[in-house]
C-alpha cells in the first residue's frame, strides 16, 4: 500500500521552514482519501434505493462533497492564494450560465419539437424548430 514514504519523513514537523512550500501532512492526505472512499461507497449504496428525483440531488450532493475534499486538500486550495480559489470557483458561474440558459431555452421550446423514431438509416429531417 502507501506506506512507502512514511518512514523517511516522520522527522519533519509541520512548523519547519520549507520556503514558500506548504507540505500537506500525511495524516491529512490519508484522512481525505479514506473519506473519499467512504463517500464513494455511500453513493453506490444510496443508488440501490429508488428515491425518485431525490436520487439525482443526493448523488450530486455526495459528488460535490467529494469534489470539495479533493479541491480543498489534494489541490491545496485551502492553503492557496485567495485569487486562485476565486478564479477557479468563478468558472462555475459561467458553467451555470451556459448550462442554465441552454436548458431553459430547450425546455421552453420543446413543445414545438416533434421527436422522431429512428431505427433506420437517415431519412427525412423532423424538427421544425420554429
Amino acid at each position: 500500500m502507501a506506506d512507502h514514504a512514511v518512514s523517511s519523513h516522520s522527522s519533519h514537523s509541520e512548523g519547519e521552514h520549507h520556503g514558500f512550500a506548504h507540505p500537506m501532512p500525511v495524516w491529512q492526505l490519508l484522512a481525505v482519501f479514506f473519506a473519499l472512499i467512504v463517500l464513494t461507497i455511500l453513493t453506490v449504496y444510496q443508488a440501490t434505493f429508488d428515491l425518485g428525483n431525490m436520487e439525482l440531488v443526493l448523488s450530486l450532493f455526495i459528488a460535490t462533497i467529494k469534489a470539495s475534499l479533493v479541491v480543498l486538500f489534494f489541490m491545496h486550495m485551502l492553503y492557496d492564494k485567495p485569487l486562485n480559489a476565486i478564479i477557479f470557483l468563478s468558472s462555475f458561474i459561467f458553467v451555470a450560465l451556459f448550462i442554465g440558459f441552454t436548458l431553459m431555452d430547450a425546455h421552453a421550446y420543446q413543445d414545438s419539437v416533434e421527436l422522431k423514431q429512428v431505427d433506420s438509416p437517415r431519412s427525412e429531417v423532423v424538427m421544425p424548430g420554429e
Partner: peptide
C-alpha cells in the same frame, strides 16, 4: 482514481520535502 489522487498529492509533498 481516488487512490491515484492520493499518491499524486503525496508526491507533491515528497517533492517539497
Amino acid at each position: 482514481l481516488l487512490f491515484s489522487s492520493l499518491t499524486m498529492a503525496w508526491g507533491v509533498r515528497c517533492a517539497q520535502l
